[in-house]
Design a protein around this nucleic acid. Structure first.
Lengths: 339, 339
DNA sequence: TTGTATGCGTTATCAA
DNA sequence: TTGATAACGCATACAA
């Protein structure tokens, strides 16, 4: 409650407030004796600087905003874990806000974060977002912004994400090398680079192995509305299964488990009737039914690097022009894709 | 960046700062005309009040601290989702900090949150925590504190959690009614009420169905250290399996999936060789191998209620003496416990 | 090396 | 109804 202030210390020690302030910030223009005196008193009465006052004065809050689609998503949670670790180490507080895959809500988050004075913002945009002007505006003002996981060409800022083309290529190539040629691709509908790149990786793998690309085996499914996602997945799967693909490559965490559930419900044997591999970072992949072959992203590392980049930016370090950091994905073969 | 301030408005409109302030806070002592004028100008230049300045002045930050073991845990993430929803609606920002099941880190979180001026703290203590003096101190100062999910008798504050006795009873009774009598109980080691209550529910169900309680079928396993948790689970399971129990009731999310993984690895057929039921809130329970019977907690609701309670407390509403809200658990029978 | 004075943006108290 | 002024706690330019 009643925290002790600089004035309290200054009165008790009979020195001026500014001297106390200097002693506490370890200024060079301060006598050794007084410094010790102040430090001792401060520690004894466990003085903690008032964050609000300091922020108001300095114009920095030592806090950064993090916008993600949903906290209730193991992949996101893993990234947040990485972000939190770096920020805690650097003395930055994070304010996490969820867009819930809604463009409107995403804008609201940005506004709220900005208004509350965060020093920078890192964001993984919603699948709904096609217009990035709310972020462009920040960027044009020189406000520190970093994109992570979900990135877009639209913005010229620092970006950290997994190598989606590589991951999709690995998955598709693995299916091909297992003898499948009729491979479906199911992805989340969005204009984000992710969707396009994973599709690209899929196509590149097909081409590289002389497997003909069939447009009808590719579906982009709206996964933004949690109420309708099951319905949408069911619809896409229904259409896809009519074509009797030998294998499916699902391009997002959500789709991978949803599709697995769908196939189980409809009594498909995996991998006998149909093979499955998908992007997923769930720790439960090995104990799914069947154990799920996955493309795993370095989620925690994505969070760490993005956070470090943003903090450097916030601190005004010259880290050069905006660049995109691409991290390697890891293929984990399990039963769902084994012949 | 350069946000517009009250002074900017006052200058532009040639009225005093205090009038502008009053207009914006919709004070009763303000003329309709000027109010409209100010509001219009503020909206046009999208004025946003400086949170720091207001906080400094008012002594409240409109932010609350949330301490949890780890954000990378689906049950926790679901609770956070509920917390976030309520807080967003009420205009409160949350600052999430992770204890990582470490007592020391938990104390550090509390100190940091307190120092950063949060208006209240809600916490789900670590399994390591046995000494609650860091929280008692806050409480004794009249600082708003709410315990959620993991509670303790040691603190006389508002608490929100699931009905653990009920959940454990349901799970155990279900196993008994399926014909099992040799039922093991594996739980996380802690002095928190949760551990004791789930054990209690287990024993009550045994007693109510005239099944004799066997001490050696109960193990409390240290799950605090992520490095050693697999090792500890393996050790406990190894000892337990020697006794050839017919079924296992695991008392935490972590243990439920760890045990499932362990049994799969060691080629036990579930439920043929051994039945399994456990507390878990994973959405993937239905597609685990085999689908996992669970006691599901109303995670989101726990978060919502706890957040609402804390906000009421922070706002100074008289919500009466500290009480404990117990929410019903839900039994979900799946293959892992089916005869 | 230390002290004095000012201001960050807001709200609240007092006068007008 | 409005305006002038002080204060929240801190950091800093300037004076001593």
């Amino acid at each position: 409650m009643s925290n002790i202030t600089l004035r309290d210390i200054s009165k008790a020690l009979n020195i001026s407030v500014s001297t106390v302030s200097r002693a506490l910030t370890d200024s060079h223009e301060i006598g050794e004796e007084t410094k010790k005196l102040v430090l001792a008193y401060a520690k004894e009465h466990n003085y903690v600087p008032n964050r609000m006052a300091r922020s108001l004065k300095v114009g920095k809050t030592k806090s950064i905003g993090v916008v993600i689609c949903s906290i209730d998503n193991s992949f996101v949670a893993q990234m947040l874990d990485g972000i939190d670790q770096i920020c805690t180490e650097s003395g930055y507080q994070i304010i996490i806000m969820q867009s819930k895959e809604s463009y409107e809500q995403e804008k609201a988050c940005i506004n709220l974060l900005y208004a509350s004075g965060v020093d920078g913002i890192m964001i993984s945009p919603s699948f709904q977002t096609t217009d990035f002007s709310h972020l462009k505006e920040l960027q044009s003002q020189g406000f520190p912004v970093v994109l992570f996981d979900r990135i877009t060409e639209e913005l010229n800022v620092h970006k950290v994400t997994a190598n989606n083309i590589q991951g999709a290529y690995q998955a598709t190539a693995h299916l091909i090398s297992s003898g499948y040629t009729k491979i479906a691709h199911l992805s989340s509908k969005s204009t984000l680079a992710m969707t396009h790149e994973r599709f690209e990786g899929y196509k590149q793998a097909l081409a590289a192995h002389q497997v003909s690309y069939q447009e009808e085996l590719v579906k982009f499914c709206n996964t933004s509305d949690p109420q309708k996602v099951d319905e949408n997945v069911a619809k896409a799967m229904n259409e896809l299964l009519k074509l009797q693909p030998q294998a499916i490559f699902t391009a997002t965490d959500l789709l991978s488990t949803k599709v697995l559930a769908y196939l189980n419900e409809h009594n498909y044997s995996i991998p006998e009737d149909i093979s499955l591999i998908g992007f997923s970072n769930s720790d439960l992949a090995p104990i799914l039914n069947p154990s799920l072959s996955t493309v795993r992203q370095p989620s925690k590392q994505i969070g760490e690097l993005a956070a470090q980049t943003l903090i450097n930016l916030v601190k005004g370090k010259d880290i050069g022009p905006a660049e995109t950091i691409l991290l390697d994905t890891e293929l984990q073969i399990r039963k769902s894709s084994s012949r």
